[in-house]
């Protein structure tokens, strides 16, 4: 039990996909303008990442490992992720039309979110089992959503601040992301204990 809790904390905070591994920066910057869209994107990505890492584990252990088809790993994982994203898009469109409009192009682009593929490949690399893959995927996605929402909250406040003209817009957002990354380096101390 303790091992699983540690794994969740480790993936969400200590080895955060965005701020420590620098994966999935594009949607992080793209959809963190407002807290509502960040929340929606976080939930969609959480669903995709958790499901796709479990499915990737299933395919790896049932198909790729027994038949020695390791060279097809990237291709099949992308295929699975694309299918899950398509499914998510249908669900979001059915459930909430405003959210579908707000997420726009970033919803289908979850397919090319390197964090999703990265988590699936890291699962294989580290030889995780079913529960471990599930937790690893969910923890990473939780960390991703957390950063998205924290960044969106910060950017909403910065939007009201008097930012010098050369820094206004994207540059100040990247400065904020950099400072957040520095702050998250503090969590690295947890893992050594």
């Amino acid at each position: 039990m303790q091992e699983y809790v540690l794994m969740l904390v480790g993936t969400a905070l200590v080895n955060n996909v965005v701020l420590v591994k620098f994966l999935g920066l594009c949607p992080t910057m793209g959809t963190s303008g407002k807290v509502e869209t960040a929340l929606g994107m976080g939930m969609a990505t959480t669903f995709v990442m958790t499901l796709s890492s479990v499915l990737a584990w299933a395919i790896e252990s049932a198909l790729l490992a027994p038949f020695e088809l390791g060279f097809l790993r990237t291709l099949t994982f992308i295929l699975v992720i694309a299918a899950v994203v398509q499914f998510t898009e249908m669900v979001v469109r059915r459930v909430s039309q405003p959210l579908y409009q707000a997420l726009g192009i970033f919803l289908p682009l979850i397919t090319t979110n390197c964090a999703v593929l990265g988590v699936a490949l890291l699962n294989v690399q580290e030889g995780h089992g079913f529960i471990q893959s599930l937790l690893y995927g969910f923890g990473s996605a939780f960390g991703f959503s957390l950063i998205l929402i924290v960044l969106a909250g910060l950017r909403e406040r910065v939007a009201l601040a008097d930012v010098p003209a050369p820094f206004a817009g994207a540059p100040i957002s990247f400065v904020i992301a950099g400072l957040l990354s520095l702050a998250f380096m503090g969590f690295a101390g947890i893992s050594t204990r």
């Binding site: 395919i59 198909l63 038949f67 088809l69 060279f71 097809l72 291709l75 099949t76 295929l79 699975v80 299918a83 398509q86 499914f87």
Partner: peptide, 16 residues
């Protein structure tokens, strides 16, 4: 390799 990818593609496509 060809067979497994084909089966995978057809299955996912049908489900979608």
């Amino acid at each position: 390799a060809v067979g497994s990818l084909t089966v995978l593609g057809i299955t996912l496509g049908t489900l979608l």
